[in-house]
Computed example of a mutant assay.
Amino acid sequence: MQLPSLQQGKLIQRYKRFLADIQLPNGEQTTIHCPNTGAMIGCATVGDTVWFSTSDNPKRKYAYTWELTETQTGDLICVNTQRANQLVQEALQNNWIAELSEYQQIQAEVKYGDEKSRIDFLLDEKCFVEVKSTTLLTEKGIGMFPDTQTLRGQKHLRELTSVANQGNRAVVLFAILHSGINSFQVAEQIDPKYAELCKTAQLNGVQMLCYKATFLRQDGVPTAMELVEPILFE
């Protein structure tokens, strides 16, 4: 997936969830939009490099959008949560996810379930795929989801368990958007209920997949991402 043209700055602070102040290379300070409502643990440290895109929409209050963080240890993280589904859709279309390569028809945002949910992708009307953007890296180098309690995520696991019990295929696809993550665990210490529902879902046939994004650069600037590398779900 090609990224929009990116510029860089240094993070001063993130606040009110949707805003961040950065310092540009020329010393100027500006405010940008943060398209991530999560805790962003480890993704918003003061002094990190912020890679941002520019909108040409004159109605926007903030023209700049935070796309990637480059940490002071050199890891790249995609913090724009909208990119996760775009990456997965590209991967499905190109058969990069081996476990899901048998399907031909891809539908996005399809209503389903008793709790009035929307599945991220419905494949051939019989395989339900829920995407979870994962950016939390622990000190041991393990990626984890969620990074905060997620009632919405709990609901999705209940829905997928029901789907599997009805004889359909149900999949949770953790899209790993942090270059430093090489294995994955559910964050039981952050959301024990989500972890419990995840175990129940697996026992009922819900499949858990983890694929990691590869970041591509040109002249040092990130230009593209691809979701091609499977990693271990521990």
Rank of each mutant, 00 (worst) to 15 (best):
Q2V: 07
L6S: 03
K10F: 04
L11K: 06
I12S: 08
Q13W: 03
R14L: 04
K16T: 14
R17A: 13
D21I: 11
N26D: 14
N36T: 12
A39I: 04
M40Y: 07
A44W: 05
T49P: 02
V50S: 07
W51Y: 06
W51A: 01
F52S: 04
S55V: 12
Y62R: 07
L68W: 08
T69N: 13
E70Y: 01
G74A: 08
L76S: 02
C78L: 14
Q82K: 15
L87I: 01
V88G: 01
Q93N: 14
Q93Y: 11
N94H: 14
N95Y: 01
W96T: 02
A98N: 12
E102K: 14
V110N: 12
G113N: 06
E115M: 12
E115W: 11
K116H: 09
D120F: 07
L123P: 12
K126A: 14
K132M: 03
S133E: 10
L137M: 02
T138H: 08
G141T: 06
G143T: 05
T150E: 09
L151F: 08
L151D: 14
H156G: 06
R158M: 10
E159I: 03
L160Q: 03
N165A: 02
N168A: 10
A170Y: 04
I176P: 00
L177V: 00
L177R: 01
H178V: 00
N182M: 02
F184D: 00
Q185A: 15
A187N: 13
E188K: 12
I190F: 04
D191G: 04
C198A: 11
K199R: 15
Q202Y: 02
V206I: 04
V206P: 00
Q207I: 10
C210R: 04
C210H: 01
K212I: 01
F215I: 02
M225L: 15
E234Y: 01
